[in-house]
Nucleic acid binder design. Structure first.
Length: 479
RNA sequence: GCGGAGUUAGCAAAGCGGCCAUGCGGGAGUCUGCAAAACUCUUGACGGGUGUUCAAAUCACCCACUCCGCUCCA
């Protein structure tokens, strides 16, 4: 049984989807006004892993993640750089997709973009006005939070305590109440705008998530997720809008990941203390970054230090060693041995046990930290076996490899094996063998030199001895 | 002010009442032509106090400190 923590109820509950076997999940994606930094990555990796785990546990996950491409901050960047908003959005969007791919983040089922859903959002707002939850005021449209009694339930705040007098936004005279939030904003000079029943303008920030999530997944989602910084006001507003419109619960489970801190401060755009993923990947492997993130439970804060990520890199490399070693043996099965030694039986038991322990750990609100503890214990056992067993049993080690594959697919680690088996490597190895064979030939050790040529040929590399040099090529000789 | 989260060994990080977390690092050993790896043992912790309990890192209360949200933010 999977237990899941929801910010709304602030406790662990059994995970039950509305439709059996299917998870409808909306993850709040980034605003594309800059490069992906570790804070974004932490969120994305955490939820990507939970998604992978749910899939591992047999769910079909419909995962929607938006890109906010029309928003104050994008417009601001466009102004500064004197470029079109669309152009800026396109550019950062492509960088985001690149960085997501390099971190081995799975593509969402749908990646909707706000700009392409403006008309539907206008309809959404019209619906709210009809129901009396929103009002037009001087070209703007606001959500009337006092009409929605449960406003504040997600962030656990009383309406009186929200937006005290004094802040600029609270004193906006167009509002009836300081905490009311904009659904539609009147156009400003030099900014993009759309036509609407209330005049030219553009949509407010939170409306896109409500509208797009409901459009792609239905009125009630199983999971809605994002960073803790979105709880208020963004998600609070989404709940208000959506539930006001449909009268149904908006999402069953609200998941929020902890921050990445640096120097005891939250890593964020506004503080300017962020580490970009592109830069980080200059020094650390994607696997190390994923491991770094996943060694901490998704709701806990992570403190970023160079030391910590160095440690993650070392750990990641060692884990990869044993994964690869196991795979090499598993690929090399010649005979399926039915005889099982004590060590074989022992390892088989440990494989079963490890899988059980792992599932138990992950079922408890996706405790990747404990999940990794199981993986590390397990990798030590496999390592031990590979070095101690008189003979490596192909059937047994294949089972071990299978479990490593399961772990890898859930954590999204070491998936690009091809990069380790490059043509470059083949070239180096063949050249080395040719060189060694050359020495044997000098010594007139024809036995060894022929053996190398024959074995290479069997492996698919043919050598051709010429007076000046040895040529080699891949593939069988033509007959 | 209001609302949350937290303080665990040298570092990172689980744990949510009793038994070994785990990773990195430190020490010793095994193996070994060299090198590397691996494995074994070991090192060590629960911010401070007072309670509750047969038993507390884990519950309650108090104190100290840190961070976060209430403003754009993953």
């Amino acid at each position: 049984m999977i237990k899941i923590y929801s910010t709304l109820t602030r406790q662990l509950k059994e995970f039950k989807t509305i439709e059996p076997g299917v998870v409808k999940w909306y993850n709040c994606g980034p605003t594309v006004n800059g490069l992906m930094h570790l804070g974004h990555a932490r969120s994305a990796i955490a939820f990507d892993t939970i998604r992978r785990y749910l899939e591992y546990r047999g769910y079909k996950v419909e995962y929607v993640m938006n890109f906010t491409d029309i928003e104050d901050r994008v417009i601001e960047v466009a102004k500064q750089e004197q470029r079109a908003v669309l152009e800026v959005a396109e550019e950062y969007l492509s960088y985001f997709r690149r960085d997501m791919a390099s971190l081995n983040l799975k593509e969402a089922t749908v990646h909707p973009r706000a700009m392409l859903h403006i008309n539907q959002m206008i309809e959404f707002i019209e619906g709210l006005i009809e129901k009396g939850y929103a009002y037009e005021s001087g070209g703007d449209v606001y959500f009337d939070v006092r009409k929605f009694e449960e406003y504040g339930k997600l962030s656990n705040q009383k309406i009186e305590n929200i937006l005290q007098e004094g802040t600029e936004d609270a004193e906006n005279p167009k509002k009836r109440f300081p905490a009311d939030f904009a659904l539609w904003k009147e156009k400003k000079e030099g900014e993009p705008y759309w036509f609407s029943p209330w005049g030219d303008g553009r949509v407010g920030w939170s409306i896109e998530c409500s509208q797009m999530s409901m459009m792609y997944l239905g009125d009630t989602l199983d999971i809605h997720s994002g960073g803790q910084d979105l709880i208020f006001p963004h998600h609070e507003n989404e709940i208000a809008q959506s539930e006001a419109l449909t009268g149904k619960p908006f999402a069953k489970y609200w998941l929020h990941n902890g921050y990445v801190n640096i120097d005891k401060e939250k890593m964020s755009k506004s503080l300017g203390n962020f580490v970009n993923i592109v830069d980080l990947l200059q020094h650390y492997s994607p696997d190390a970054v994923r491991l770094f993130v996943l060694q901490t439970h998704y709701r806990s804060p992570i403190t970023f230090t160079e030391d910590a990520i160095d440690q993650a890199q070392i750990t990641s490399d060692r884990l990869f060693d044993i994964v690869l070693l196991t795979k090499n043996y598993a690929n090399d099965i010649k005979v399926d041995e039915s005889f099982l030694s004590e060590l074989d039986k022992d390892l088989l038991e440990k494989i079963t046990k490890a899988r059980e322990d792992f599932v138990k750990a992950m079922d408890e609100d996706f405790n990747t930290s404990n999940g990794f503890a199981v993986v590390f214990d397990y990798s030590r056992e496999v390592n031990d076996y590979l070095r101690k067993a008189e003979q490596v049993n192909g059937a047994v080690i294949s089972k071990a490899d299978e479990l490593f594959n399961e772990f890898r697919s859930i954590f999204g680690l070491y998936e690009d094996f091809n990069s380790y088996l490059s043509m470059e490597l083949v070239e180096k190895l063949v050249k080395l063998l040719v060189e060694i064979r050359g020495e044997y030939r000098k010594e007139k050790n024809w036995g060894m030199s022929d053996k190398i040529r024959d074995e290479l040929k069997a492996a698919g590399v043919s050598l051709e001895d010429n007076p000046k040099r040895v040529l080699w090529k891949l593939g069988e000789d033509k007959k």
